[in-house]
Nucleic acid binder design. Structure first.
Lengths: 339, 339
DNA sequence: TAGCTTCGCCGAACCGGTTCGACACAGTCG
DNA sequence: CGACTGTGTCGAACCGGTTCGGCGAAGCTA
């Protein structure tokens, strides 16, 4: 069931079969039909390994995301799904590689063993050794997220700074004066996780601009941590009337914490943030939030990567998205401050 | 940077380099050191394609899951994550293939082009042409889920029948007499989706056994559908006091629907089901449910597949899991029936 | 010192494709 | 009728590894 077998049965040479199938050189109509018939009869499909070896391309892209442990969030799922789907449309397969760092064995395999033609990096950090490494190698890659010096790279990112600022302005416009920020876990912040940093940054600056009193918190990626975080917020400053979060996994816990504290959303307390809309619509009342267009971002990342693969010296391209805030039901005017 | 280059620099033949690195034949300590030194110097890693071609194994396993459109659920994410991680531990990469059917191009590529050594199938249907096809080919694969005739196959599954029955018994023990079942979308039921069928089956039988009055519903995989579904349930039979669901994506909507209808959980209404614990803990009150051990299932599937790959004529093995119901806060004794 | 084993290495073939140069044959033109 | 172009096919080399058979040198026995 290899190309030699086909050639023999069709009474031609191996190269003729190859050309007949690829169309890279003309082949007479008669032989082409004969070959096609044999191929159909035997259900022949050329071996991906052999083809990859011969023409130096695997038709596979790597999707690099950090290993579990830190739970996966819904956003990541949407990225994965849309990347796989978009890649399939270009006839690329997707190889998953769980690695947080440059030095990961999994990452080394992807590159060193040339298993993939290009890579998409998720969960970007401001200083990201994976991205730096790939850039230094000139290896075709696209980041989902922006590093600290993004100008020269290929990426599709979310403007977390602007988005967090928009959330602050939304709350300030509603009259809120004391606002908390619920970030991702501290460990992510320490390692320089992009969205956590830029989100915090945008929040802090916008809050200063509007003269708000703020407190910022890190919060584990689960409901229990969210609930605990709200307790801390209300303990630290009971007069807090709103919060901004980009921690979707904690969202349910934040709501529960507010409910336990007797704060009604949105009457007594407003909550907003940056969250995949799947989650925003799951909670009650539904979350007013900047919806992360994860599916679109995954698709764009693949588009960019394919463009880069097709044209290896194309200049870097980027997509920086700023989705609007979807007004739902979790924010309202600030009432009279409580004690 | 290929093996010939290494050989030249080390002053030996290509085969010697190969043997030095693989250890499949003894090599003198001196030459081995010399080779290792050159390898380290140049950071040489053998090409995966070439190696795959030569020894007929790709060191890659395929993870086959249905294309998006139907939103991904949290469970699927956990499967993917744990499969990737477990595979990495065995030095296997994971190739994602979005295909619902046997005839998918993506599925054909995986098999026909021999991109993977084995496959793990998610989202199994009772009559699953993918599973049948693989079985007929003798292609090493493990299903996450059970087909209608599972005896002869490799799988790791959840006993949805027993689990749904356990939920019913739990509710019946609490005195509930009128109970609804909220299934996955109708389209999945029609295509023979395993968990939807077996769950429904277990629910129906157990309810009959306990003499309960039941209604069963299909519900879209999102919060809005969940909310609408609760409205329908309470409209069809306002005396309903409990529901069982295995639709995690609708869960938030179910809660919202109940809240809008003025039913307090668990005082007026009990809710339970089969759900990944990440979701069970997100809602308020936290869901009493049979927790889907998705991460464990993914790991087990990889274990099974690797075992099958290492020993191609091993007899089929299976894992059928029946996790216990985790008592949380969403169920309680039936109160006096409402009008 | 001839004869035998053992050890370490080499050359060649192979995996299954792709691609380049060449060649046979037919058709056109001078 | 010979030279010229163009079409269709073939053989061989190559991609980068693995693996098998064999061979030379060293070590041992007789």
């Amino acid at each position: 069931m290899n190309i030699g077998e086909i050639a023999r049965r069709a009474g031609v040479s191996r190269s003729t079969v190859s050309y007949a199938l690829s169309g890279k050189r003309p082949v007479s109509e008669d032989t082409r039909r004969k070959i096609q018939q044999v191929v159909d009869e035997l259900g022949y499909q050329p071996s991906a390994s052999a083809r990859a070896l011969a023409n130096g391309r695997t038709s596979t892209i790597g999707l690099v995301f950090p290993p579990a442990g830190n739970h996966y969030t819904g956003m990541q799922l949407d990225f994965i799904g849309s990347v796989v789907e978009a890649a399939a449309a270009y006839d690329y397969d997707v190889l998953l590689s769980p690695s947080g760092m440059d030095s990961d064995r999994s990452f080394q395999r992807l590159l060193g063993e040339r298993r993939v033609d290009g890579a998409i990096l998720m969960e970007i950090r401001l200083e990201d050794d994976r991205a730096d490494h790939l850039a230094a190698l000139g290896f075709p890659s696209v980041a989902i997220g922006r590093t600290a010096h993004p100008e020269d790279g290929w990426y599709v990112g979310l403007d977390h700074t602007a988005l967090a600022a928009a959330c602050v302005h939304h709350l300030a416009d509603l009259g809120h004066r004391r606002v908390a920020f619920v970030n991702r876990p501290e460990q992510l912040l320490r390692t320089g996780y992009e969205s956590a940093h830029r989100g915090l940054d945008g929040f802090t600056k916008a809050a200063a601009e509007r003269g708000l009193t703020v407190r910022t918190y890190c919060c584990g990626d689960d409901a229990a941590a969210g609930q605990a975080c709200v307790e801390r917020i209300l303990h630290d400053d009971p007069a807090t009337t709103a919060l901004v979060t980009l921690n979707e996994a904690a969202l349910g816990g934040l709501y529960r914490g507010l409910a336990h504290a007797g704060r009604h959303v949105p009457r007594d307390f407003s909550i907003t943030g940056i969250v995949a809309n799947r989650w925003a619509e799951t909670v009650t009342p539904q979350l007013t939030a900047a919806d992360v267009p994860a599916a679109e971002m995954g698709r764009l990342a693949v588009d960019l990567l394919v463009e880069r693969l097709d044209n290896s010296d194309a200049p870097p391209r980027q997509h920086l998205l700023i989705p609007p805030i979807s007004l739902r039901a979790s924010t309202g005017p600030a009432g009279s401050p409580q004690t």
